[in-house]
């Protein structure tokens, strides 16, 4: 009898959300959205529970989670950084900005820094093309970013945390 461990909070949360959608398998994507919104990510155990609640296979849930780029199985950093790689940003140098962030943080796209501060992702068009190239840190939009600005932007958040600790 394979056992899967989950916190009481997560278990109840998943069950509630699934119930809200009448445990209808067609609502899988809506369920995943809501669960990820609350928990920040979708670990395997959670997916198993969702599968059980919606009466579908865990394979199907995992197939869906890995299909859509919005879903993640890894916890995000405290400050999730997203670099817009839409065309407008690309032709205005987004790739160089992304490279610089990767170099500064020593992580690749899809990874989180070992201290859990930053995670990095590339996304497609936030629709702020007038501000291209655009970098999002959390909800905050940084527009017209050049490679030379990267250090400053990162420092803003790094130091922010320091002052919090002090």
């Amino acid at each position: 009898m394979p056992k899967i461990k989950l916190t009481e909070y997560a278990t109840n949360l998943v069950k509630e959300i699934c119930a809200k959608f009448n445990n209808n398998e067609g609502e899988l994507i809506n369920v995943l959205h809501q669960v990820q919104n609350k928990l920040g990510y979708l670990p395997a155990e959670i997916q198993e529970l969702i599968a059980q609640e919606l009466n579908i296979s865990a394979a199907k849930v995992y197939g869906v989670v890995t299909f859509y780029s919005y879903f993640t199985m890894k916890p995000q950093g405290e400050f999730p950084i997203s670099v817009c790689m839409g065309t407008a940003c690309y032709v205005r140098g987004a790739e160089q900005v992304l490279d610089e962030i990767k170099r500064q943080l020593r992580i690749d796209v899809g990874e989180t820094t070992p201290d859990g501060k930053f995670s990095l992702s590339a996304l497609r068009c936030v629709g702020a093309c007038g501000l291209a190239p655009v970098v999002l840190v959390g909800e905050k939009v940084h527009g017209r970013v050049a490679t030379v600005d990267v250090k400053k932007i990162l420092a803003e958040y790094k130091s922010g945390c320091l002052s919090d600790k002090e």
Partner: peptide, 21 residues
């Protein structure tokens, strides 16, 4: 809700996505 898949702009893919697949 879509979840970040350009191909879902295609009608049949969009419908499969709305069906939870």
């Amino acid at each position: 809700y879509g979840a970040g898949a350009f191909v879902c702009g295609e009608e049949t893919a969009l419908i499969h996505s709305m069906e939870g697949s």
